[in-house]
Simulated scan of single mutants.
Amino acid sequence: MENATPREPRYRFTGHERVLHDISATKALPELLSLFGYERVFLVCSRSINTKTTIIQELRECLGSRLVGLTDEVGEHSPLSNVLEAARQARDVRADVIVSVGGGSVMDMCKAMQLCISEGAYDRDSLLKLQFVLSEDGTEMLTTSRAPARIRQIAIPTTLATSEWTPVSTPIDDETHLKARFVVPDGSPRGIIYDPAILAQTPPRLLLSTGIRGLDHAINTACSSVPHSFASLLAEKAIQLYMENLPSLMGNASREALTNCQLATWYTGMGQMSVPHGFSHWMVHIVGPYGGVAHSDAACVLMLAQAKWLEGWADPQHNRVRTALSQPNRAFHEILRDLLEQLKMPMTLNDLGLSREKVEEMIHPALEHPMVTLNNLRPIQTETDLRAILELAWSA
């Protein structure tokens, strides 16, 4: 499909009812549950959060009898088998809300669980029938689910990649090792709790890489092929906040740096569903499962390659960001490279441990992916285009 341009940009409200920032989760969560009338909590977290931090024990204590179930069986990229098992568990304990504590994999899993419960889809084949379709102009992902939401999510993010701001869930299919693609009705969390003390317990390397993933989302919003002025304004401020505060997370991060990075995810999330994103956002979904690479690490490399690809094609967008960063005379990709180097993040496909043979295996799946070759400000439509931008990812 060729790049398509809709008649006008559209702003999409994400369905959140409460966003609480710079607050203790143990104080805020009971208050949110009471506000929404929830009494039966099913908690989803990663194994590391459950066993290597005090977060879950503290939440257990504040929830008391409201906690009716918990799972920490959340594999990388949210395998469908984990999704289906957790959905059955939440159904069996009659949970009326899911509380997620974690990063993108945890929140993705919770969104897919919501879809299972709302649709009564508790096996792989039934769930996979509910994958999204594209709008006629190729710029919007549309749900195929018609069931009203029977359960919602409250998110307590522990990373910075902005999954809490979308209804999109992309768990990995255990059988094919490909990403399933769902747009979940009311899939954006009903409430978000940003607790900087919880963020401070995330390993710095993970925090930094997910911050780059959030930065990549903001850049894709600012450099969208169909921009929206409100979304661009939020994205440009988010880029500035990420760039200025991520380096401060390398040591003993201050509360100010942590809260500013959480603000950056908030600003990014408020706009990212309103405009189509380009190559670096979606190619992560190929490089991750095919290369066995964490999404956020892949985002570092692909973000840099995309900035090089767009040099001369996104001058107004890059100029505004460069000015905000007080670096008006430098190429945008050079600014990004310096940030990645400072944060000790991967900058090339070699840094990800990928061979040229392995990357070659990704060409066909990338061309078949419904989004990778769509909506790029500088077109990426053919095998030649795809190889050309990937070639830029072999060197910093």
Rank of each mutant, 00 (worst) to 15 (best):
A147Y: 06
N350Y: 12
P247C: 07
P171W: 10
N375Y: 09
V83N: 04
I193D: 01
L263K: 06
R205E: 15
A4S: 14
Q89V: 01
V44R: 01
M1Q: 12
V284Y: 04
I192T: 03
E175D: 14
V41E: 01
A180F: 12
Q327H: 12
E175G: 04
W266M: 13
R60H: 15
L128V: 11
A112H: 09
G214Y: 04
R7I: 12
L20K: 05
G353E: 08
L336Y: 04
P379H: 05
V83T: 11
L392E: 08
C62G: 03
S355K: 06
S232P: 00
L258G: 01
H285Q: 14
N220C: 13
P289V: 04
Q262P: 00
I56T: 11
I156M: 02
T162W: 04
L233G: 05
L70C: 08
N50D: 13
P171G: 09
Y267R: 10
G120L: 11
T14S: 12
P346F: 05
V83L: 05
T268V: 09
A238L: 08
L367F: 09
D125A: 13
L160G: 01
G211N: 02
E58S: 13
C116N: 07
G102T: 05
T221N: 03
A231K: 00
Q131G: 07
G288C: 06
E360W: 08
P370D: 05
N82W: 04
A197F: 08
L199V: 03
L386A: 09
L63P: 07
L377M: 12
L43M: 13
S224N: 02
L392T: 06
N260P: 00
S224W: 00
S145E: 05
A149I: 06
V19W: 12
R10A: 08
L160R: 00
G353F: 10
S46H: 03
A314M: 01
G75H: 10
C110K: 00
S24R: 14
R47I: 06
A264D: 10
G353D: 06
R12A: 09
R18A: 12
F230E: 09
A324R: 15
H295P: 02
G75L: 07
M250R: 15
N319S: 15
D195M: 06
C110L: 00
Q89R: 14
R190N: 00
T382W: 10
L130F: 11
A314N: 05
E76H: 11
S78R: 09
D72F: 14
E76L: 12
V321R: 03
S254K: 02
G69D: 06
V301M: 10
H77P: 02
W282C: 09
A86R: 01
G187V: 10
K308S: 04
L20V: 13
E31P: 00
P148N: 02
V287M: 10
H228L: 03
G271H: 07
K308H: 08
N245L: 02
V93K: 01
E31A: 14
C261L: 01
G191R: 04
T384G: 07
E164P: 02
I389D: 03
I239A: 00
T373E: 03
L246C: 04
L340H: 06
A112K: 07
